[in-house]
């Protein structure tokens, strides 16, 4: 830090307790003191994960240590919020590579998240989206819909309100992501997701079934009418599919047999 003032990046993981600085001490100094010293001559700060960018689990209600994210305890330096609990490893590497390759900080959105990785919602890039649009949902874990990989909206999926690259880059060299492995998205890259209602309670009123748009693309009235029309279609499709599923004759494979338990 002494050798390259103004030239170095400070990379932070973890949030900063402010209720009593002694809630986190290293080498006898508080986390707040260490961070304040480190960023003094920094070029910019990268806040890794929701702890550093949004407070995360320790800041969940009632936040016993008054834990705060980096941008709420320092000022005067650009802070890049790389969100997620944790962020996808390839995203973290991607941010560093972007800075080194293009010699600039990636373009940030209104919450200072790199657009390169946080410009799209999970809902927009999820491979199960066609199921949502067609009204094909899992009703309970490991039911027939789950065994076919239907949409997890009714199980509480927060994909419609979560910005991240899980549907694109996926996790651990693209092996899978929560929805693909059968669990609804819990929204782990959004601020305050721990307090946004129980994980298994589904989001109210997600505009739906194919009309997911901003006001400047389609007029509100037209949007509603179209949505209603598509909603009706989707409901009819859902009923038809449901009938098919329930009445479907066994294909001779024992794994299709519900009754075994």
């Amino acid at each position: 830090m002494k050798k390259y003032p103004g030239e170095y990046l400070v990379m932070v993981e973890g949030s900063i307790p402010t209720g009593n600085e002694a809630y986190c001490c290293i080498g006898g100094k508080s986390a707040l003191q260490i961070l304040t010293d480190a960023v003094k001559n920094a070029k910019a700060v990268v806040a890794w994960g929701n702890c550093a960018s949004a407070g995360c689990v320790q800041a969940a209600s009632p936040n016993p240590t008054d834990a705060k994210p980096v941008h709420k305890v320092i000022s005067g330096k650009p802070v890049i919020n790389v969100q997620g609990c944790p962020p996808i490893a390839a995203v973290m590497a991607g941010v560093v590579v972007h800075i080194l390759t293009f010699d600039r900080i990636p373009q940030l959105d209104g919450m200072n998240r790199p657009k390169a990785f946080y410009s799209r919602r999970v809902h927009d890039t999820c491979y199960r989206r066609p199921n949502f649009d067609a009204g094909l949902f899992v009703d309970s874990f490991d039911d027939e819909g789950a065994k076919r990989g239907y949409c997890l909206y009714k199980m509480g999926c927060k994909g419609p309100v979560t910005y991240n690259s899980c549907g694109i880059i996926k996790w651990n060299d693209g092996v899978s992501y929560p929805i693909q492995s059968g669990h609804p998205c819990i929204g782990c890259s959004e601020d305050g997701f721990w307090d946004n209602g129980p994980f298994y309670q589904h989001l109210p009123g997600v505009a739906g079934f194919g009309i997911e748009t901003t006001a400047d693309k389609i007029g509100l009235g037209l949007g509603i009418a179209t949505a209603a029309g598509i909603a009706t279609h989707a409901i009819v499709t859902n009923i038809r599919k449901h009938k098919e599923i329930v009445n479907e004759p066994a294909e001779g494979s024992v794994s299709d047999n519900h009754e075994k338990s």
Partner: peptide
């Protein structure tokens, strides 16, 4: 990742 969707967590 296969069974739980991601690692870590």
């Amino acid at each position: 990742t296969v069974f739980g969707g991601k690692n870590p967590h």
